[in-house]
C-alpha cells in the first residue's frame, strides 16, 4: 500500500454565511496502491480538489491522517514534508502554474534544482517535452505560453523527479485531443513503471485512453464513493 487516508475530513470556515463553516470532505478512508490509477470525478464544488490537496500534503485534514508508505505526512515538519513531497509526489495543480520569471525548461527543472538533484534531468526534461510537443518552447518564458502549453509544462514538471505518486487536477482541461492522448500515454507509462496516478477529471472519455485499470471515485457533496474498478 503506497498511500492510506484514515478517516480524513475537512471543514472550511467562511464569513458572512448563516453557518460559519461547512464540510467540504466528509470523513472517509482511502487506499492507493503502487502502480494504480485512480480517477476522481464529481460536480464542481463537490470536494474533489480538497480531497487531493489533503492526499498530497498541501492541506491538513480537520480529522484523520494520511500515511504515505506508513508515514504520517502531517506529522512531519514543514521542511521535511516539503522535501518528502518534492521527492515522492508530483502535483499538477488546477489553473496556470508556471513561474513567469523562468523559461519553460527552468520551470520544468525547478523541482530538481530546488534540492540540487538536477544532474541528468535536462535530458529527461527534453525527452518529455518532445513527447508532449513543446520541445521548441524550451527557452520561452512561461508568461508567453498558451493555456495548453502551460498545462503540458506543469505535467512534465510533476514528472521530472520520477515521483512515486502523481496527483493531477484536471490535467487535460486545456488540451486538444492530440495533446490529451500524449498526456494520457505519459501517465500510462508512469503507472506501468509503478507510479500511482490520481487524476481529477470531468472528462471520463480521456480515461479510456489509458491502458491500465482505473478505479473511479465519485465525490458527491463531500461524500466519496468508489464506483468502479
Amino acid at each position: 500500500m503506497l498511500l492510506r487516508a484514515e478517516g480524513i475530513s475537512r471543514d472550511y470556515f467562511r464569513n458572512g454565511r448563516d453557518t460559519n463553516f461547512f464540510t467540504a470532505v466528509k470523513k472517509t478512508d482511502l487506499e492507493i496502491e503502487k502502480g494504480s490509477c485512480t480517477a476522481v470525478s464529481g460536480r464542481s464544488g463537490s470536494g474533489k480538489t480538497t480531497l487531493i490537496n489533503m492526499l498530497s500534503g498541501l492541506l491538513t485534514p480537520t480529522e484523520g491522517r494520511v500515511l504515505f508508505d506508513g508515514e504520517d505526512i502531517y506529522a512531519m515538519s514543514d521542511s521535511t514534508r516539503a522535501a518528502f513531497r518534492n521527492r515522492n509526489i508530483g502535483i499538477v495543480p488546477q489553473g496556470q502554474t508556471g513561474l513567469k520569471s523562468l523559461t519553460v525548461l527552468e520551470n520544468i527543472l525547478l523541482p530538481a534544482v530546488m534540492y540540487g538533484n538536477e544532474k541528468d534531468k535536462t535530458e529527461k526534461a527534453r525527452k518529455l517535452m518532445k513527447q508532449l510537443s513543446i520541445e521548441d518552447l524550451e527557452d520561452v518564458f512561461a508568461n508567453e505560453l498558451s493555456g495548453g502549453e502551460l498545462r503540458r509544462m506543469a505535467i512534465i514538471r510533476a514528472m521530472i523527479n520520477s515521483p512515486r505518486m502523481i496527483i493531477a487536477d484536471e490535467p487535460t482541461g486545456d488540451l486538444d485531443d492530440i495533446s490529451t492522448e500524449a498526456v494520457m500515454k505519459l501517465f500510462d507509462d508512469c503507472i506501468k513503471n509503478g507510479c500511482a496516478v490520481i487524476i481529477v477529471t470531468h472528462e471520463a472519455e480521456c480515461l479510456s485512453l489509458l491502458d491500465v485499470p482505473v478505479t473511479t471515485l465519485r465525490v458527491d457533496d463531500g461524500v466519496i464513493k468508489t464506483q468502479s474498478r
Binding site: L58, D78, S79, R81, A82, A83, R85, N86, R87, I91, P93, T97, G98, L99, K100, L110, P111, M114, Y115, R157, A158
Partner: peptide, 15 residues
C-alpha cells in the same frame, strides 16, 4: 500564486 506553486513542487516555507 507563485509561493503556492513553489510549495506544490516541494519548497519549504524556509526556502
Amino acid at each position: 500564486k507563485e509561493f503556492a506553486v513553489l510549495s506544490v513542487i516541494g519548497a519549504s516555507k524556509k526556502m
